[in-house]
Simulated assay, not measured.
Amino acid sequence: MPNMDAESFQAIDETKLLAPEPMNHAPRILLLYGSVRPRSFSRLVSEEAARILNRFGAETRTFNPSGLPLPDDADVSHPKVQELRELVQWAEGMVWCSPERHGAMTGVMKSQIDWIPLALGSVRPTQGKTLAVMQVSGGSQSFNAVNQLRVLGRWMRCITIPNQSSVAKAFTEFDEHDRMKPSSYYDRIVDVMEELMKFTLLTRERADYLVDRYSERKETAEELSKRVNLRSI
């Protein structure tokens, strides 16, 4: 068994987990949806989710993906790319809601996530932030899109909550004013947003410590050591 780096290996500090300094602003939640259709049901579900989150005390912002270029088909200075990245940096939690198309999330949804880098300079914009995943379907209930979103959430180092929502035959779940009708699907969305709020309040003060990794501390220490050695030459 290899010896662990003594300086990088640290005992768990319970004080950083149990009693952090509380934040005094409302939890900041960003909502992303995966369709640019005029009557997008993933947008409508996201709007319902935002209303619920506001009732729970969150501050919400929603990104409109219309006009966002395909990944690698524009420079990162594109206004829509900059808008998305700034919103991700602002957020402490996120909601991703995609339609299911051909058994998968939409390209619109994936493009948004692909424009979010794992790192912006020394900042990892999604690491340690909470995430709720949802999907809408035109037919029977499915979980293909939310399962894919979970994989992406893990890859982006988000704290993805256990609960999720999948709305079947979404076109039947909204009235003529584009408000969601009372149903078990609506109740599940309330459940998911409630859980997201609880996880966000529980983790946001602790996020940096929760995702602080031995391997990364070791790598950082080695890089610093190399720089010091180079300067001494």
Results as ranks from 00 to 15, higher is better:
45 V>M: 12
23 M>H: 15
24 N>E: 15
32 L>V: 04
38 P>S: 14
26 A>S: 11
24 N>L: 12
42 S>T: 11
49 A>I: 06
16 K>H: 08
24 N>W: 05
41 F>T: 11
31 L>E: 08
33 Y>A: 01
25 H>L: 05
48 E>K: 06
21 E>T: 13
19 A>H: 09
26 A>M: 04
48 E>P: 00
42 S>P: 11
41 F>H: 15
29 I>F: 02
36 V>E: 14
33 Y>V: 01
35 S>F: 04
48 E>M: 09
21 E>C: 01
22 P>Y: 07
42 S>E: 11
29 I>S: 01
30 L>P: 05
39 R>G: 03
28 R>M: 02
26 A>L: 02
24 N>P: 06
45 V>W: 00
46 S>V: 08
36 V>R: 05
35 S>E: 09
26 A>I: 02
45 V>E: 08
48 E>H: 04
34 G>R: 04
22 P>G: 04
37 R>L: 07
28 R>T: 02
17 L>Y: 12
41 F>P: 04
43 R>M: 08
36 V>Q: 11
51 R>P: 00
50 A>S: 13
37 R>Q: 09
40 S>K: 00
19 A>M: 12
51 R>E: 14
37 R>I: 02
33 Y>F: 11
17 L>R: 11
29 I>A: 03
40 S>G: 02
25 H>C: 09
41 F>L: 14
50 A>K: 07
24 N>F: 07
27 P>D: 08
25 H>W: 07
39 R>K: 13
27 P>K: 00
26 A>T: 04
39 R>N: 12
34 G>L: 09
34 G>Y: 00
41 F>N: 11
30 L>S: 07
19 A>F: 10
21 E>R: 05
39 R>D: 12
16 K>Y: 10
47 E>R: 01
46 S>K: 01
38 P>Y: 11
41 F>I: 13
44 L>K: 06
38 P>Q: 15
31 L>D: 09
29 I>T: 03
48 E>Y: 03
17 L>I: 15
19 A>L: 10
51 R>M: 10
26 A>P: 06
35 S>T: 13
51 R>V: 10
24 N>Q: 13
38 P>G: 10
18 L>G: 04
19 A>K: 09
26 A>C: 06
33 Y>Q: 01
48 E>N: 01
16 K>V: 12
31 L>Q: 07
49 A>H: 03
25 H>D: 15
17 L>S: 11
30 L>F: 10
23 M>Y: 15
